[in-house]
Design a protein around this nucleic acid. Structure first.
Lengths: 338, 338
DNA sequence: CTGAAAGCGCTAACAG
DNA sequence: CTGTTAGCGCTTTCAG
């Protein structure tokens, strides 16, 4: 493969100056139709296409943004973050932004070189450490948080309406007559845990229901852990008639526990999930869950990021993406044991 | 935020030439300890870090690679491709490569500018069109295929050992005494369909078992479609005692169909999945499946890509990632109905 | 509308 | 070891 053609080659072959070639590509309306045509012909004969690096260099901009997932293990393997990623990707492509993807760990490991990655904006997914945020801020890089809210700092962020989601789940259960409602919560990021926890307490309180410490179980993020936690919860004689799962995986664990204890879902126990992930329709019965439009969340991130990069909107507020109850087969009126 | 410091600023403040500053950063061993220290001091005082774009320009290389998923709908939302993506990402970061992610559709839509994306290598996931491949080839961009094999072209590719995986599943079933074994296959990429299909026929033949056209059902990729297809398969009086699912989602559909028809899994029907995805352990009973180390597949892609980019290995062969049976709860000896 | 020329920030010979 | 110098490929005044 021979050297790539440059603007000079095109200039020579078409008999116009490099400046004109440049204009023909970056602002076609500034060059006469005929000239333009000549340039394009020469260009395609030479198989020329502008070198983006050279352009970026003189323009002093890169149109490059990064999506950094701040999470320990599975990152894009986590369906939730994958969904956000998909939204970010699609929107970034549509806006002609280059998207770089990384994890917080990897990113910081590369710190030495990372400084020169020349990104102009960054979307931080999950529980971003203050240090990381500060680093970007000090380098003048635009930031958007997703699924997290940095306490104290005025950063734009996009969030699912977690609290309202939990409220909808609780309301649904209460409408069905449930009173003894428990929650099993996974060790998600602090922000998420707080929101879902608070949302639960608030929603219960609103109906005059108090929740004791034995009504909320904590577990890890995996299904085994959730199953164990749920088993304890369901083993008590005065066991709940419904449990809201911290997310769909946790809810699957609850269902598994119920099966082991021979408690029929939904006849003897109602359960709800959160995220409306793909597993909902694979479970039996299918899992009632809260839909959150993760792809839209991702798209919003990019839009906001672009705005702040261009200095358009300084609105450092939170964008709330609504959440919606998807009724499936795991909830039933209390006491309908037949 | 004021202008970023350049190499000249550092040169001035530290009293050495720009060349030395450059060396201090890119080949520290070529500059005297004392000088180096001076440079670093000046640099950090100015908050300087080398501009990667300028460097890339003069070096005529970008260290930038792309992962393009050639698939219609869910892309990284597909757990399988997400796993590959995770592997690619981790390895790319470790090797200091910049990773750009896109879908085939988006990529081609951006064609005009994409030419200038300055990527040096590309990993094509799934069913890449010949046109796309040719385009990259003609531009001298290194290519690695993953989960696909381009007929006729000598391109390096990394694949899971699909055929052997299916063979293991079939062997397992046969060892358990099954003889009437059916398959439900989803509309995956042509390559995958062919491999799994052929693998099935071959494995059965090896045991002297013939498979008729009614023993293989095709369906879409979603669970509803799989459920329908399986229902038909299981409704026959001479129904199979085992079915191997084209992947885990399909297998979940088979299980769902069995439940509807009141056929107990695994007592009256054994089923196997493929991919060993996260849903296996959420199903009841837990799904026996074939583990394929997708992350390792992703990592291999990057390693191979880097080698070909550097002209090291012209070995345009296929790298086969082995596959392993994970026994869980959905398979049982035939006829053990109690 | 087009051309000449001056860089963007960095690296790589080539001398010293 | 270090400095000088000549670009990498493109855009952009500023004149014509």
């Amino acid at each position: 493969m021979r050297m790539k053609a440059t603007i000079h080659d095109v200039s020579r072959l078409s008999g116009v100056s490099t400046a004109t070639v440049s204009r023909a590509f970056s602002s076609p309306d500034q060059v006469k139709e005929a000239t333009r045509r000549k340039v394009y012909e020469a260009a395609s004969a030479l198989n020329y296409s502008p070198n983006a690096i050279a352009r970026d260099m003189v323009l002093q901009r890169t149109n490059r943004v990064a999506y950094i997932i701040c999470k320990k293990h599975a990152t894009i393997l986590d369906e939730f973050y994958a969904g956000i990623c998909e939204g970010i990707m699609r929107r970034a492509n549509a806006l002609n932004l280059q998207l770089i993807i990384s994890t917080a760990d990897d990113w910081q490991k590369m710190a030495a070189n990372a400084q020169s990655k020349q990104i102009e904006g960054v979307i931080l997914g999950g529980d971003a450490e203050a240090e990381l945020i500060n680093d970007f801020q000090s380098r003048g890089i635009s930031i958007v948080l997703v699924n997290n809210r940095a306490a104290g700092m005025e950063l734009p962020c996009v969030l699912a309406d977690e609290r309202d989601g939990i409220r909808q789940a609780v309301d649904h259960l209460i409408t069905l007559g449930h009173k003894r409602i428990a929650m099993v919560l996974g060790r998600f990021s602090p922000y998420i845990v707080r929101e879902r926890y608070t949302g639960f307490i608030e929603a219960m309180k609103r109906h005059g229901l108090t929740v004791g410490s034995q009504d909320i179980a904590m577990c890890e993020r995996d299904i085994e852990s959730a199953t164990e936690a749920a088993e304890k919860l369901l083993f008590r004689p005065e066991r709940p008639t419904a449990v809201v799962g911290g997310n769909d995986v946790i809810a699957a664990g609850v269902m598994k526990a119920a099966r082991r204890l021979n408690i029929s879902v939904p006849k003897a126990l109602s359960v709800t999930g959160f995220d409306d992930s793909s597993i909902c329709s694979m479970l039996e019965p299918e899992l009632t869950s809260m839909r959150v439009d993760v792809q839209r969340m991702g798209e919003s991130c990019v839009d906001i990021l672009k705005d702040t990069m261009e200095g358009k909107s300084q609105a450092a507020g939170a964008v709330m993406i609504p959440t919606r109850l998807i009724k499936r087969g795991t909830c039933q009126e209390v006491g309908q044991n037949g």
